[in-house]
């Protein structure tokens, strides 16, 4: 029998993705264990956001495959359009985007309960109760009937996180979720994610915020040119990188000039 604590949650092998002639992911191999919190850093255009979008099943792929919790999830086909994505498996993954992507015509509560009611056939009353609990936990108890346009960026992003959690995901993907926020609002969103981290929620995070990366990561990947250049614990990748490219990048984002 496979040991549940060490069996991989995600395993990616030979993942390739191209936009036309542009190779964005050039054969990624990656395994992620349950309870791990992967932070993906790297220069723009290095493939980190694409990796997350592929994980969410938002993109067709050109080669390779992904298994999730032991089940086949995504498999490349003869052409990118024939990529096989298991929709049932996809439902156990949640994602939060840079630009909130709340549904503007629905209020906060309606945003939260739409998927549970429609996807799982949950009763409206039960979903509402769970939604309210989540909102209170995230400091949004007063905002249940507000519309997205009436919220600050930080509030919107917390609602987006709550909305994703309503489906009890087994893995959460965060794609630059604080990049569009005013600096003073970044903290409240990061606190919510740290709170999830303390409950051992497996997650993959793309971020430019090195302080946040250091605090939340159990493992850091440095992605550039469509490859994983370096992969290790945060102290190593952020503190004493082995690879020259990682070192260059870290130096530049921390403004260290020698």
């Amino acid at each position: 029998m496979i040991d549940r604590a060490t069996a991989p949650l995600v395993s990616v092998s030979g993942l390739q993705k191209a936009y036309g002639a542009l190779q964005v992911l050039q054969g990624i191999d990656l395994t992620m264990k349950p309870g791990e919190r992967l932070v993906v850093i790297g220069p723009s255009g290095g493939g980190k956001s694409t990796l997350l979008r592929v994980m969410m099943g938002l993109e067709n792929i050109n080669g390779g495959s992904i298994t999730f919790a032991g089940k086949p999830y995504i498999h490349a086909g003869a052409t990118p359009a024939k990529t096989a994505i298991d929709v049932q498996v996809r439902r156990s993954i949640g994602m939060v985007f840079q630009h909130y992507t709340l549904f503007p015509h629905l209020n906060v509560l309606q945003n939260l309960i739409l998927a549970p009611c429609k996807v799982r056939g949950e009763k409206k009353s039960a979903a509402t109760e769970r939604a309210n609990t989540l909102l209170i936990r995230f400091g949004l108890g007063q905002k249940a009937t507000a519309f997205p346009s009436q919220l600050s960026g930080g509030q919107k992003q917390r609602v987006a996180i709550a909305r994703a959690l309503m489906l009890d995901p087994k893995l959460m993907l965060f794609d630059e979720v604080t990049s569009a926020l005013d600096p003073e609002l970044v903290g409240e969103v990061e606190q919510v994610i740290l709170q999830l981290a303390r409950q051992n929620m497996p997650m993959m995070i793309v971020t430019h915020d090195m302080w946040f990366a250091k605090n939340i990561a159990s493992r850091v990947l440095f992605c550039a040119g469509g490859f994983i250049v370096e992969d290790g614990p945060p102290e190593q990748v952020l503190g004493a990188p082995k690879e020259e490219r990682t070192k260059d990048f870290i130096d530049r984002v921390f403004h260290i000039r020698q």
Partner: peptide, 15 residues
């Protein structure tokens, strides 16, 4: 992004 969000929430096409 709205369509992406629907996929991320696993909404069926009809919904």
């Amino acid at each position: 992004e709205q369509y992406d969000a629907c996929v991320a929430l696993g909404l069926p096409r009809w919904t």
